[in-house]
Amino acid sequence: MELNNIWKTKFQRAPDCAFREIEGETFIVSSSTGGVHLLNSVGSFIWNRLELPATPEEIAGAVTDEFDVDSGTAQKDILDFFTSMIETSIVRQFESGESDG
């Protein structure tokens, strides 16, 4: 998927992931890939947002509101983060026609 396309595409947590929030960090295990992931506080904030479908653009806005970070840095970091989450299959693209929660 092209980076420009990622920016305005809705994503949601993959349904085959088990996760637990532990003292501000989020520990995620994918039952399909076996991958184990640990998210820091910002990653956990994003993961919580992805309970419902959201675009990286929307998430970036929420991150800049919540954390002390400029929008340029937030955009780059969030694109990198989404790229990583897509590659490791812990988020999936929200298909139009699905109920969004």
């Binding site: 992931c17 088990a18 637990r20 003292e23 989020t26 520990f27 295990v29």
Partner: peptide
């Protein structure tokens, strides 16, 4: 704390790859 939990979990063997079982293991 989360890393501690992960370190124990990562060394659990013969876990069924099923979401409820993985949640119980976590």
């Amino acid at each position: 704390a989360a890393e501690q939990t992960r370190r124990i979990f990562e060394n659990m063997v013969f876990l069924p790859p099923e979401i409820n079982s993985l949640g119980a293991a976590m």
